[in-house]
Design a protein around this nucleic acid. Structure first.
Length: 293
DNA sequence: ACCCAGGAAGTCT
DNA sequence: AGACTTCATGGG
C-alpha cells in the first residue's frame, strides 16, 4: 500500500475536506463511517473513491491531509481535490460583494473538485429535482449495483460503472433503484457514451458556450446540468450553474442579472461574480445559501 | 405519533 | 405550459 501526507499549511487558502466533499458539488466520494450529509464531521473517518480501477482514500488529521491507495496517488489526489488552486488569489480577485464575502468567510478551505467526466455527468443527470443527500445515495447505489467490486485493505470498494456497464442496465431496473423519471435518461446517456456517439470529456477542447451546447446532446442534460459538468469535471471555472438556489439569489441580490433565457442570465451573473472564476463564487454561494447562511 | 402537502443542484415533449 | 418519480421533511 502506498501512503502519503500533504501539509495543509502549504496550500494557498488551506483545505476543508468536509466542506469540499459534502457541499453537493461531487457525488464521487463516500465516507467510511457511512455518515455523509448527516451534519456529522468525519473525524478520523476516511473519504474514498475509485478512479481508473484504483481505490483512493483521504482524510485530514490535524493540519495534514493523508492519502492511501494501492498506487502512488499523490498527483491524482492533488488533481481530484484541486489542491494547487490558489484559493487566496481566487478570493482576492473576486468582486467586493457583501453576500459573496460572507460566503467565502463562512466556508474557508472549500475547494472545487475535478470529478471523472462520465461519473460527473451521470451524477448531475440524477440531480434533477433531488436533494443532495438523495443524489449521493443514488450514485452510491449505481456503483454498488453496476460497478466493479474491488477488494483492498479488507474492505470492498465499488468503482463507478463504466458506460458499458451502466448501459447494460434497463430503465425498469433503475426505476426500482429509485431513480424515477431519470432512469431512462441515465440508460440512454450511458448508451450514447458506450457506443462512442459522444463523450463528455470531448467538451474539454471547446470554448465555454460551445462546450455547454455539446453536453446538452446527452439525454437528461440541459444547460444547468451541462454547466455542472463543465465546472465540477472539466475545469471551466467560468461556468455558473443556474440552479434553484442561485436563481433565487439572483432575484434577491442581483436582480439586474435576471435576463430573458438561460444564456443571457448566465452571461450577466458570470460577469457579476467575477468572470473567469465565477464558478468558484457560485459554489460558495450555493453552499452558503443551502446551509442556511 | 400519524398524515399530508410542498418541494427537491431540471429536462423533455 | 405541463408532466414527470420518489421520498425525506416540516407543519398540522
Amino acid at each position: 500500500m502506498e501512503t502519503g501526507t500533504i501539509p495543509i499549511g502549504e496550500l494557498s487558502g488551506g483545505l476543508d475536506l468536509y466542506r469540499t466533499l459534502e457541499s453537493g458539488q461531487t457525488y464521487c466520494w463516500r465516507r467510511s463511517d457511512d455518515a455523509m450529509y448527516t451534519e456529522t464531521p468525519p473525524g478520523e473517518a476516511w473519504y474514498y473513491t475509485v478512479v481508473d480501477g484504483s481505490p483512493i482514500r483521504v482524510r485530514t488529521t490535524g493540519r495534514t491531509l493523508e492519502w492511501q491507495s494501492p498506487i502512488d496517488a499523490e498527483s491524482l489526489v492533488r488533481r481530484l481535490l484541486r489542491l494547487d488552486d490558489d484559493l487566496e488569489a481566487i478570493e482576492a480577485a473576486s468582486p467586493d460583494d457583501p453576500l459573496l464575502t460572507e460566503a467565502y468567510e463562512a466556508h474557508r478551505g472549500m475547494r472545487l473538485v475535478e470529478d471523472p467526466p462520465f461519473e460527473c455527468l451521470v451524477s448531475f443527470i440524477c440531480s434533477a429535482q433531488m436533494r443532495v443527500s438523495r443524489i449521493h445515495s443514488m450514485v452510491s447505489t449505481l456503483a454498488r449495483e453496476y460497478g466493479t467490486p474491488l477488494e483492498w485493505n479488507d474492505e470492498t470498494y465499488h468503482s463507478f460503472p463504466t458506460p458499458a456497464q451502466l448501459a447494460s442496465a434497463t430503465e425498469a431496473e433503475l426505476r426500482d433503484l429509485g431513480l424515477g423519471y431519470r432512469a431512462p435518461y441515465v440508460v440512454r446517456t450511458a448508451e450514447m457514451v458506450a457506443d462512442g456517439e459522444a463523450h463528455p470529456a470531448e467538451a474539454r477542447d471547446l470554448e465555454y458556450e460551445p462546450a455547454r451546447e455539446y453536453l446538452t446532446r446527452f439525454v437528461g442534460v440541459g444547460d444547468k446540468v451541462a454547466d455542472c459538468v463543465l465546472l465540477f469535471s472539466l475545469d471551466f471555472d467560468e461556468a455558473v450553474p443556474l440552479d434553484t438556489w442561485i436563481k433565487s439569489a439572483i432575484e434577491e441580490y442581483y436582480p439586474e442579472c435576471s435576463q430573458n433565457g438561460y444564456a443571457a442570465t448566465s452571461r450577466a451573473i458570470r460577469e457579476e461574480l467575477g468572470g473567469q472564476h465565477a464558478g468558484y463564487a457560485q459554489t460558495y454561494l450555493f453552499h452558503h445559501l443551502r446551509t442556511g447562511g
